[in-house]
């Protein structure tokens, strides 16, 4: 009886908390489906969280007011390149640090660990100056290339590869496979969780990137979605229904990936905590 009551209290508390947590999301989704004027009128009541009429008008308006497709394609291209190239480059480095014997390895790995603590913000200004000198501003390259190599990804791969059994490689080597073959056909398939974690963390960071694109792009041609919504939100007339429709379309791909690969998202994030 007592147990039942405790569980009931826990469920009740969780439900109240859950409502608080999803209220802003409901506000956005419901607002995207109703006429612009109603969003502001209803913002002060619980009706704001529920769609009273369902219309895709706002979604159409987004496309007619700004070039949403361009923002979306830019985001997909930039994020896709950073994730794919990052997986290849950082996994190979992580493997070299974890499983190969070479001179300078420990010293270099120590340096990688030191670089790990430098956040982008601490180098944004000189990096901005650097790419300005190179004439890289307003390009895709400037939003992709600097973020491919990533100390934290190398660290995660390194940790994971260290935990793989040695026998895997020895069997391959006896079969006469070279280092690259061993890596591609033996190590990569056995390290899926590490690849999934790194891919998801990189994807989340890049999809939301705001500071760097803001600094290095000025034209709309190469700007990604986060800059798109910031610009759209200040574009008169202020129409909240349209802004929320933009928001829903911007987060939908991430949310979809999250709901399908939830286990990996949670593991990827939890992996960041192992560091302590």
């Amino acid at each position: 009886m007592k147990r039942w009551r405790i569980n009931g209290a826990i469920y009740l508390g969780l439900m109240v908390l859950a409502l608080v947590f999803i209220a802003p999301i409901l506000l956005m989704v419901a607002g995207s489906l109703k006429p612009d004027a109603r969003v502001l009128i209803e913002a002060g009541s619980w009706r704001a969280l529920l769609p009273d009429s369902v219309s895709l008008q706002n979604y159409g308006d987004v496309f007619s007011r700004v070039d949403f497709t361009s923002y979306l394609l830019n985001s997909l291209w930039i994020t896709g390149c950073v994730v794919v190239l990052g997986l290849i480059v950082n996994a190979m480095a992580g493997y070299a640090f974890a499983r190969m014997q070479w001179r300078g390895r420990d010293l270099l790995f120590g340096l990688v660990l030191m670089i790990l603590i430098i956040p982008l913000e601490a180098i944004a200004v000189p990096l901005f100056y650097q790419v300005t000198l190179w004439g890289w501003r307003d390009t895709y390259v400037v939003q992709i290339v600097p973020f491919i190599a990533n100390a934290f990804s190398i660290y995660l791969f390194h940790t994971y590869f260290l935990g793989l059994p040695r026998e895997l490689e020895e069997a391959a080597r006896i079969d006469g496979a070279g280092v690259l073959r061993t890596f591609v056909s033996i190590i990569v398939p056995n390290a899926r969780p590490a690849f999934a974690s790194v891919a998801i963390l990189t994807f989340l960071t890049q999809w939301g990137a705001f500071l760097w694109p803001l600094m290095v792009t000025s034209g709309e041609a190469v700007r990604p979605l986060p800059l798109g919504i910031a610009a759209f939100y200040t574009l008169p007339p202020l129409q909240w229904g349209d802004i929320f429709a933009f928001g829903v379309m911007m987060v939908a791909p991430v949310l979809l990936l999250f709901l399908v690969f939830q286990k990996w998202f949670v593991r990827g994030v939890a992996a960041t905590g192992v560091k302590g």
């Binding site: 908390l17 859950a18 802003p24 607002g31 919504i229 929320f244 928001g247 991430v254 949310l255 998202f265």
Partner: peptide, 21 residues
């Protein structure tokens, strides 16, 4: 899932939504 969901939202979008809140 519900408590974790906001984490996947880009901060730029979160900021815009909270301006209305």
């Amino acid at each position: 899932t519900l408590f974790f969901m906001p984490v996947v939202f880009p901060l730029s979008l979160v900021s815009v939504v909270w301006v209305l809140i």
